[in-house]
């Protein structure tokens, strides 16, 4: 499932499409400590977080995740979104908590 397909199915907002119509979500990592995310998230993971700053986008690029999902109704600032556009990072937003999004991802990935 692509990030955009995931967003459509569960009512998330697609803030930046980036490569979210082409890449497949193959796993997921939830976290807000960016060093931990960078060290442990895998390529093509959905990166689920409430950490909304420009470094979040940088970590998403370097860890090569499929998308960033920002939870709890939190929004990125324009600088972060501009960086996401430049780097073709798919950004989704949801009003739901991280745990709920993780459950939905787990279901789609066949983990629960």
């Amino acid at each position: 499932m692509t990030p955009v397909e995931f967003a459509d199915k569960y009512g998330l907002r697609v803030i930046e499409t980036g490569c979210g119509e082409e890449r497949q979500i193959e796993g997921a990592y939830c976290g807000d400590l960016l060093s931990m995310v960078m060290g442990r998230a895998k390529e093509n993971d959905a990166f689920v977080t409430v950490m909304a700053n420009v470094n979040t986008i940088a970590v998403a690029v370097l860890a090569d995740v499929a998308c960033v999902i920002l939870c709890e109704g939190i929004h990125f600032d324009e600088m972060s979104l501009s960086r996401a556009r430049q780097q073709e990072v798919c950004v989704l937003e949801s009003d739901e908590p991280t745990f709920r999004i993780a459950l939905r991802l787990g279901k789609e990935l066949g983990l629960c």
Binding site: D32, L33, S35, M38, G39
Partner: peptide
């Protein structure tokens, strides 16, 4: 508060 400073940098 920006998501760093958790003591993971050098180990990473």
């Amino acid at each position: 508060s920006l998501g760093f400073g958790a003591g993971m940098g050098l180990p990473n």
